[in-house]
Amino acid sequence: MLATNQIVYPDSDGQPMADNTKQFRWIMLIHANLNWLFRDEELVFVAGDLLWYPVEGNPKYRVAPDVMIAFGRPKGDRGSYKQWQEDNIAPQVVFEILSPGNTEGEMDRKLQIYARCGVEEYYIYDPDRFVLKGYQRSDDFYLERIDRMDGWTSPRLGITFELIEGELQLTHPDGRVFESFDNVATERDLICADNQQLESDKQQLETDKQQLEAEKKQLEAAKNKRDAKLRELGIDPDTL
């Protein structure tokens, strides 16, 4: 049994990860690509829809960013992100993907929490209205709105935000566009199909080569037979 004075920090707030498929798809796209981007960095923790408790002793003061990145913290599973157990390192970058259910008051509250708790970069995208907002820390307690997000490159992540015909496009530092699992799987299938075709073509070329070699031997045998017959008749085949 729990001691009467033991504080409980639930791993769930009872809210769904996403309100609709579009929001879920964007969350997964950003989470998966950032995981891939920092796959070799042991001290970069990337999480999606994970409860973050900034202050010990106050389990009601919590927030669950759609995606958050904590530099300086090891990878690994967590039930929640208790900041005091993470060397008091706050996630430096957070993303929120809006759904029709998000209210202005809710987003203002999150902005205040992120500003107060040390977030350096905060990005919001509304996939229904194609609205992209970004905030960057200007001092210890304030996140300042980024004037122009189209073409903006995250100082922490190195990724670039672009609006292509109104829709958000994110690119890796090397210029590769953020890819969904479906697209990666499709490309993998195409590569596999191409490899299979190349292997089939290679086998066909080998078969053709063997066939040509067999025909060459048959012609050589026929020539030798003809030359032998000519010599029997007293004719030198080399003079023909």
Rank of each mutant, 00 (worst) to 15 (best):
M1Y: 09
T4D: 14
Q6N: 05
V8G: 00
G14R: 09
Q15T: 04
P16T: 02
P16F: 04
D19M: 14
F24G: 09
I27T: 06
I27K: 14
L29Q: 06
L29F: 05
N33S: 09
F38W: 13
E42T: 09
L43A: 12
A47S: 04
D49H: 03
D49N: 15
D49G: 08
Y53H: 12
Y53S: 10
Y53E: 10
P54Y: 10
G57W: 01
Y61W: 11
P65Y: 02
D66N: 10
D66Q: 08
V67E: 14
M68I: 04
A70L: 12
F71K: 14
R73C: 10
R73T: 07
P74I: 05
P74N: 11
K75L: 10
G79L: 03
Y81W: 15
Q83S: 11
Q85A: 08
Q85Y: 07
D87Y: 10
V93A: 09
F95C: 09
I97F: 13
S99P: 08
P100S: 05
M107C: 07
R109H: 06
L111N: 12
Q112F: 13
Q112S: 13
I113Q: 10
Y114A: 01
A115G: 05
V119R: 02
E121A: 10
Y122T: 00
K133A: 03
G134S: 04
G134Q: 03
Q136T: 10
D139W: 14
D140T: 02
Y142T: 04
D147Y: 07
R148L: 01
G151K: 05
G151N: 05
L163V: 00
I164S: 05
E165M: 01
L168V: 00
Q169K: 07
E179R: 06
N183E: 15
D189N: 11
A193F: 04
D194Y: 03
Q196A: 14
L198K: 15
E199A: 14
Q204E: 15
L205C: 01
K209F: 06
K209S: 07
Q211L: 10
Q211E: 12
E213F: 05
A214H: 11
K217T: 09
L219R: 11
E220T: 12
A221T: 12
A222F: 05
N224R: 15
D227L: 09
D236N: 15
